[in-house]
């Protein structure tokens, strides 16, 4: 513990920047792929990023522990959720792992069906996952089994909808709670006007696409 102000944080010289390209990632992840051979799938590398798909979402805790303890992925960057509407299983949970020691990035994803909407928490393995999981619960409605404090985080407690699901309209739905909390639908004037993927211009041009 430095006592005086003059003993300020040290600045260390750093070698000139260097791009780290991990060409040996498949090699590095071999123990993991070996351990969970039946349920892990290495996706094609896109833009230099390694993506793993976990077929059996029940194993998420085991895989996370393995990543943290055996492969030095000590830094959980982010957890995202994707709603693949009309696909089964519907929800995809995406974990962005990073290692401060080896400077490697790894994406791990798994899917959860709509009926189940449940996944095991990893908030005791990575404390940072606590708020991310709460956010996913808030936005997508996926419950995390064993989470210490699964409440809404961004919307107010008691809000009945899950806004990031695809069927939820951007403008929102009117809600009136007995305690005074309320939301109204925003005026969209026919919008939002969104383009979609199509080979034909008349189908791809921006149109009002309000969800059913």
């Amino acid at each position: 513990m430095s006592a005086t102000a003059s003993e300020a944080p040290l600045t260390k010289p750093h070698s000139a920047g260097h791009k780290i390209l991990h060409t040996d990632s498949a090699e590095y992840l071999k123990p993991l792929l070996h351990e969970f051979a039946e349920s892990l799938e290495l996706r094609p590398i896109f833009r230099g990023e390694i993506s793993l798909y976990l077929r059996d979402a029940e194993l998420i805790r085991e895989v996370s522990l393995f990543l943290r303890d055996k492969l030095n992925y000590d830094y959980l960057l982010d957890i995202s959720s994707v709603d693949h509407e009309n696909e089964e299983p519907r929800f995809e949970i995406v974990y962005e792992h990073y290692s401060l020691q080896t400077k490697r990035h790894l994406r791990l994803s798994c899917r959860v069906s709509e009926e189940k909407s449940e996944l095991h928490t990893i908030s005791d393995i990575y404390p940072t996952a606590n708020w991310h999981e709460r956010e996913i619960y808030d936005m997508m409605g996926i419950k995390f089994i064993g989470h210490p404090d699964l409440r809404r985080i961004l919307m107010w407690e008691g809000y009945p909808h899950f806004p990031l699901r695809k069927e939820f309209p951007l403008e929102g739905l009117p809600v009136h709670m007995p305690d005074g909390h309320f939301t109204d639908a925003a005026p969209m004037e026919g919008g939002p006007f969104v383009t979609s993927t199509s080979d034909f211009a008349h189908e791809a041009e921006p149109r009002s696409r309000t969800p059913h």
Binding site: E7, P9, L10, H14, K19
Partner: peptide, 14 residues
């Protein structure tokens, strides 16, 4: 192109 510039990363001790 940050690798082209020479700078230091200040880090703390406590």
């Amino acid at each position: 192109g940050y690798e082209k510039y020479d700078f230091e990363v200040p880090i703390g001790s406590v």
